[in-house]
């Protein structure tokens, strides 16, 4: 049986509920796409049913042949495609076909990171305890996607709603992240 990186933390994270609803969404399909050719990017976007983000530090989402999928901007020629679990092999083949001869790479990185969804009115405030990126809605509106450090560990942070964020954290750092999150919530739990 496959155990998700934060399986042992499920109860402790659920106990943060008065402050934050924390849920791990494990085993998402994740593919790192490296391509700079604009035509190939457009072809990959239409194969996926989700256009690739054109602006830095943003993500796009949509529904296509692989259900709900998201494309995250990681760098000027680097993107992360995320979709429901178990689709990575199929998506990899389809994207490789879409890139054609343009030159680029599609790599299955599903095991690299686990996904944690945080929801609650205090989500930006709690994350600000360990993250130097300005998370105020005026500078991090819905649709923002940044790679940064949270309490010294590398994360990908997606702002998916006014009070909802998705964090992608390396599987081996997930327990550290969970422990930090539990600690950061402590002061709000006391008054909740």
């Amino acid at each position: 049986m496959t155990v998700s990186p934060l399986a042992a933390w499920r109860d402790r994270l659920a106990a943060l509920a008065p402050v934050l609803d924390v849920a791990e969404v494990p085993f998402r399909s994740q593919l790192t796409v490296r391509v700079s050719d604009p035509d190939a990017l457009a072809a990959a976007g239409s194969a996926l049913g989700v256009p690739f983000p054109s602006a830095a530090c943003t993500f796009t989402s949509g529904t296509g042949p692989f259900g709900d999928a998201e494309v995250l901007w990681l760098g000027p020629d680097e993107f992360l495609v995320t979709a429901s679990p178990g689709l990575q092999v199929t998506i990899e083949e389809v994207l490789r076909g879409a890139l054609g001869t343009a030159g680029g790479s599609v790599v299955d990185t599903s095991a690299q990171r686990t996904t944690v969804v945080l929801q609650g009115p205090l989500v930006r405030q709690v994350l600000a305890h360990g993250c130097s990126v300005d998370l105020h809605p005026s500078s991090a509106p819905v649709g923002t996607c940044v790679q940064t450090l949270l309490a010294r560990t590398g994360i990908v942070l997606q702002v998916t709603g006014e009070d909802r964020c998705t964090i992608l954290v390396r599987s081996s750092f997930a327990e550290y992240f969970a422990a930090w999150l539990a600690d950061a919530c402590t002061e709000y739990l006391a008054v909740a």
């Binding site: 940064t148 450090l149 010294r152």
Partner: peptide, 17 residues
């Protein structure tokens, strides 16, 4: 901590560089 303006990502903390 000093912020360094990455030409792609905008101002970020020095520890990221």
């Amino acid at each position: 901590m000093q912020l360094i303006p990455c030409p792609w990502c905008g101002p970020r903390e020095e520890a990221e560089f």
